[in-house]
Simulated assay, not measured.
Amino acid sequence: MDDEALGLTTSPVLALAVTAACPVVLVPDDPSRAAGPMPRSVRDLLGVDARRPSDAAVDFAFDAARVRDARMHAVHAWELPSEAAELPFAIPEEDRAAREDHEVQLLTDALRP
C-alpha cells in the first residue's frame, strides 16, 4: 500500500509520527477504500523503542494485525555509542556483534506478551 492508500498524504501527519515524544498510531482514514479484502502480503509495521517500549502500542499493533490477518513486522533502530566514532578504525566486529545481540534481545523482550 502506498501513503495515499493509508491516508498519509499530508506531511504534517508524518512529521507528527516522527517527532512525537509518545507512541503514535496511524490508522487509515478510510479503510473501505481498499478494493476488496487486503491481500495477505500486506504488512503492519511497528516501530519500537526497545529501551522504552509502550506495551499499549505493541498490544494495539498486534491486535490490529491479527484482526486484519496482516503480517506484523517490528523494527528497532539503534546506533553505536558516540565513542565509537572517535576510534581510528571501525569498531571491532566482536564488539559490534555483542551490541547487536543486546539490541535484538531488547526488541525480543519488548515484543514478548
Rank of each mutant, 00 (worst) to 15 (best):
D55T: 09
L80I: 11
P37C: 08
H76C: 13
D2L: 06
D63E: 14
A17Y: 01
S41R: 13
V25L: 12
R52T: 10
F62T: 01
A64K: 01
A50L: 06
W78Q: 06
L111T: 04
P88D: 10
V75P: 03
A65C: 11
R33V: 15
S54H: 00
E86F: 10
W78F: 15
L6S: 02
L107D: 03
V48I: 09
A74V: 03
A70L: 02
D30E: 12
H102E: 14
R71I: 03
S82G: 02
A15C: 03
A50S: 13
A65N: 03
P39Y: 08
L26C: 13
V58M: 04
A85G: 14
H102W: 09
F89T: 11
P28Q: 07
R71K: 08
A97T: 12
L87M: 15
H73E: 10
P113L: 00
S41L: 09
A84C: 13
R51E: 12
L16W: 08
L16A: 11
S82N: 04
A17E: 01
D49Y: 02
P12A: 07
D55V: 07
L14M: 11
M38C: 10
L80F: 13
S54G: 06
L16Y: 07
A65Q: 02
T9V: 02
A15I: 07
H102I: 02
P39K: 11
E83H: 13
P39M: 08
R71D: 06
A21I: 03
P12S: 07
V67Y: 05
P31D: 13
R66S: 12
A35T: 15
F89D: 13
P53I: 01
D49K: 05
A97R: 12
R112M: 05
C22P: 00
V75G: 05
R51W: 04
V75F: 08
R52G: 03
P39L: 08
F62V: 02
R112G: 02
E100K: 10
L106C: 07
D2G: 15
A74K: 02
L80Y: 11
S11W: 03
D30M: 09
A35W: 13
P113R: 07
S54T: 00
A65M: 05
S41K: 08
M72F: 04
D55R: 14
A34H: 15
A74N: 06
R112P: 02
A65D: 01
L80R: 15
L14I: 14
L16R: 11
